[in-house]
Structures are given as C-alpha cells and as structure tokens.
C-alpha cells in the first residue's frame, strides 16, 4: 500500500484550473518533497488530501483511505501542518498540545513535544496569541507530531522560521523519517527540499512537470557537474585529451584552467588519471554539482510556462497563500 496515492486529481475554481490531472504515488517511509513556485497548486493539492477542498474530478487515498469518504480514518493517523492556519490566540501553547493529545487519544508528554519542536516551558504556559510566527509554526508542528503519526503532511513547514529553525525542521524531518514516518512536504524553496527528500515532485501551473530522485533529475537533464582543474602549465594538449573522454563535454581552456562539463560521474576520476598520465601537474580541482535551483529553472523553462515567484534564495518572509477560494 502506498502512503499517498493521487489519481487524476483535478481542481477547478471557475475558469481557473488550480490542479490538473495530477497523479503521484508516495511510498511508505519515503520523504517526498513537493516543489513548485507560489500558486503552482501545491496547497490546493494538499488541501484536497486533507478534505479541506473537494476535487472537481479524480481521487486520492491517504494510508489507503479515501480522502473524501474516510476522512475520520485519515485524520487520526496523520500529522498535519496546514498552510494558512492560525493558532488559538487565547489558549496557551500547552493547552493546544493537550487538545491534540486528547483528540488523538494519544499519551504523549507535552513537555517532550515542546522539547522536540524547540519551545521552552515559559512560552508554553502563556497564551499563544503572543507567539511569533516561528513559534506558532513550532507549536503547530508539535501538534502534528502528537500520537506518533505514520504520515506527516506539511505544507510549507519552513514558513516563518529563521535559518536555525529551518535546520531544526530539516533535522526533525530526518528524525521522523528514521522512525519510519512517511513525510510529504511542500516548499517553494529549493534548498529545503534538496536537503531532506528522497524523491521530488515539481509542480508548475497545476501540472506535475517532474517526478524523480534528485540524482534522477540531474541525470535526466544531462548536466551533472562542472569540473574546474588548475594546472601548472598552459593546458593546450591536455584539453584535447580531456575532450576525448566519454562523459565529458564542453571543454574549455583558459590560462591555467581547464573547465569541463561531466555528465557521467565516473568520468571525473578518468579525467584526473588521464591528465596525470600526460605528465600534467594538477594544482587544484574543483567540482560544482548542478544545484537543484538550476534544474528547477531549466524544468520550468522547458515546461514553457514560467510560474510566478520562483525562489532561488532562501526566503524567510511570510509566504503569500495560494489560491484557496
């Protein structure tokens, strides 16, 4: 059984198609990153999984239960961090957790949950209305972790967190994953997905334009890494030798530097040994992995329709909510 199975899911708001015939299967134990620019339909998709929004057509199951007819079965087994939520201003952080524990019929210790999400005791005992955005996000994450869910669904979990908070969030996702929890989370920020995900799905304008592992995405786009080799003598003959190696393209020689694109990771070692055999003295080697952001930009461009607001830098400001009406 797949943790999440989305089949031809479509949501239209009047003339606007928010999500178009989306199909994804997410395996149990997997950490899945759902990536896309703002307004791509990520939240609409997640809201359909949570039954906040009803699909125009298509269907989805979560842990084998239908998202529209078996919602009660889903919500007690899943931890949810929704997008565009708010806390109860007048209730303390502790009361929030206690409420989650009671409704989930769990026996978690609120103090332990507080520690896991990085909220201290003093904060937990004052009304959550005074919390910062980041503290609200930590509290909501704590509520999602109640009852040790089999599946965590997190919509933009890094919203409102500072760099430390984001790293803690990633560590938390990794720790949950090690406990066997399936994690499905969305982001419009590439770095956050890259760091923790087993597989990535990229959504643009309501359509899935890529679905693969990070390595797979790199491979399928054919540009793996760039090697920059600094040598002691001007690399004239060396350039020809390197160019002849399979899996290496676009060799350029400038001054004492050789630059080459390597599509096959194994070719990197060949480049070094061939140059060594030539008697070239290598003084430095630098390898730049193609970052996910350039892959992402390439994919979105390939898709032909450029989505709005693609972020290539981490952004800590509040994220505008997606189409939800």
């Amino acid at each position: 059984m797949n943790a999440i199975e989305i089949t031809d899911l479509t949501k239209q708001y009047g003339d606007v198609t928010a999500v178009s015939e989306l199909s994804i299967a997410i395996e149990q134990g997997e950490v899945f990153g759902f990536l896309g620019p703002n307004g791509a339909g990520k939240s609409t998709t997640i809201n359909m999984l949570l039954d906040f929004v009803r699909p125009t057509s298509g269907s989805a199951t979560v842990l084998g239960y239908d998202t529209q007819t078996e919602t009660d079965q889903i919500s007690k087994r899943v931890g949810i961090l929704p997008e565009g939520y708010d806390i109860y201003e007048r209730l303390t952080g502790r009361k929030h957790l206690e409420f989650a524990i009671r409704t989930k019929d769990a026996d978690d210790d609120p103090d332990e949950l507080l520690a896991r999400v990085g909220l201290d005791q003093a904060d937990a005992d004052r009304p959550a209305g005074g919390y910062s955005k980041g503290m609200r996000q930590r509290l909501a994450t704590g509520m999602a972790l109640v009852g040790d869910p089999e599946l965590l669904i997190m919509d933009e979990p890094s919203t409102g967190l500072d760099p430390t908070g984001i790293r803690e969030m990633q560590e938390l996702v990794q720790a949950e994953s090690e406990r066997g929890t399936t994690v499905f989370f969305s982001s419009h920020i590439l770095e956050h997905v890259e760091a923790v995900c087993d597989r990535i799905g990229i959504l643009n304008q309501g359509e899935l334009i890529a679905l693969d592992t990070l390595e797979g995405l790199r491979e399928s786009l054919g540009d793996g890494a760039t090697m920059t080799i600094t040598v002691s003598d001007p690399p004239k003959a060396a350039a020809e030798t390197v160019d002849a190696i399979t899996g290496v393209t676009d060799v350029t020689a400038t001054g004492r530097q050789l630059e080459a694109s390597v599509t096959d990771p194994r070719s990197k070692a060949t480049v070094i040994t061939e140059l060594d055999a030539l008697g070239v003295t290598i003084t430095d080697v630098r390898i730049d992995e193609t970052s996910l952001e350039s892959l992402f930009a390439a994919l979105v461009a390939e898709d032909g329709t450029v989505g709005a607001g693609i972020e290539t830098q981490p952004q800590y400001a509040e994220v505008p909510s997606e189409v939800s009406q």
Partner: peptide
C-alpha cells in the same frame, strides 16, 4: 477566517 479551523480539522475532529 483566522485559519485556526485548519489546525482543528487537521486533528481528528471532523
């Protein structure tokens, strides 16, 4: 309107 409903419905209450 505040969004706390999403937090509530994300828990077992329907």
């Amino acid at each position: 309107q505040s969004g706390s409903l999403k937090l509530l419905l994300g828990l077992p209450p329907n």
